[in-house]
């Protein structure tokens, strides 16, 4: 389905060119990109700022260290292996348990320790990193999604993407993996995106493959009746990531763990734009509303979340366009 550019502009849809020129390059300081591009740095920083994040179990930086891998995961049933500089969920291996000396992937497939070691050397060689530079491996605790989320997703952990502009959460989307997306919460690969009302955490619309859907294609759950629990805490955690990174326009990926509650998974300095399609709303009016707040004043994360929740409800229209 096609739409006129004048209509897109009227609805305040942010396009990629405008995002890059007017927001990313204007509000994000280049020198601070490594803080979000390198997940290890993000993690250490989050621990410093006391933001809750999955516990770090080990880091592998050199090829010879892969030999110590079995020792690192000795006492862990489930764990996640991630490339520190990966993008778009590439190279993430989730092991949810063991079975007869083999490792069970989140999809239920079993793999050997040698398979994992090969994966480790691929990561170290830079296969999944942004520009092919040598990378390091992060091994962290597995996330146990809360029951409500468990039901929602076909396979894998659903996460919530927030667009955080100058510390204000402006838009949110729940990402649910599907059979088509192979357990990954990546919209490109066919995950379902559910737009969330910032003021309440309720589901608004949902899309899959840039098309509107009413129900989850695999679990059959009606998507616009979702209510995300612990909503205010999630907003607060996403807002705090601004103090941590000082980056003006970021995407914050959060999960809700059964025992630990809201957790910061990773940050992204170039967040995608499909979130607008899932919300059925444009980012521009919200971004402009924030841009009108006097930059000399400082507001605490709590105050900012309060502002966002009061402002960005379903009635929000923004300035006339």
């Amino acid at each position: 389905m096609w739409i006129l550019p004048s209509l897109l502009n009227k609805y305040g849809i942010l396009g990629m060119n405008r995002r890059n020129v007017s927001y990313i390059s204007r509000y994000n300081i280049r020198s601070r990109y490594p803080l979000v591009d390198d997940k290890l740095k993000t993690k250490l920083l989050a621990e410093k700022f006391k933001l809750s994040t999955p516990k770090l179990r080990g880091v592998i930086k050199y090829q010879y260290e892969t030999a110590y891998f079995p020792k690192i995961v000795e006492n862990l049933d489930g764990f996640a292996v991630k490339p520190a500089k990966g993008s778009g969920g590439k190279g993430i291996l989730v092991i949810k348990g063991r079975q007869d000396g083999l490792f069970v992937k989140s999809s239920g497939q079993t793999i050997t320790i040698d398979d994992i070691k090969r994966h480790l050397s691929n990561i170290l060689a830079g296969l999944y990193s942004l520009s092919g530079v040598p990378d390091s491996v992060i091994i962290e605790d597995l996330i146990h999604p809360s029951e409500m989320f468990e039901k929602l997703s076909y396979d894998g952990v659903p996460d919530i993407r927030f667009i955080v502009f100058k510390g204000y959460p402006v838009m949110a989307m729940l990402r649910l993996s599907t059979r088509a997306s192979d357990g990954k919460a990546n919209l490109h690969q066919g995950a379902v995106g559910v737009g969330l009302d910032i003021s309440s955490g309720k589901g608004l619309h949902a899309i899959q493959h840039s098309r509107r859907v009413e129900k989850h294609p695999d679990t059959g759950l009606v998507l616009d009746q979702i209510q995300v629990p612990d909503w205010k805490n999630l907003l607060l955690l996403s807002a705090k990531s601004y103090e941590m990174t000082k980056l003006g326009y970021i995407g914050a990926d959060l999960v809700v763990d059964k025992t630990y509650g809201a957790m910061l998974l990773e940050l992204n300095a170039r967040p995608g734009l499909s979130i607008q399609a899932a919300n059925g709303a444009g980012l521009l009016p919200r971004l402009e509303a924030i841009e009108h707040i006097d930059p000399d004043l400082y507001f605490t994360p709590e105050e900012r979340v309060e502002f966002s929740m009061n402002t960005f409800n379903s009635d929000f229209k923004g300035l006339p366009r």
Binding site: M1, W2, I3, L4, P5, L8, N9, Y11, I13, G15, M16, N17, R18, V21, S22, I207, S210, R211, R212, L273, S274, Q276, A277, G280, G282
Partner: peptide, 14 residues
Amino acid sequence: TGYKLTELHRFGVI
């Protein structure tokens, strides 16, 4: 800073 041609399709669902 305008829209790309492909975005006119991508956001057509709006």
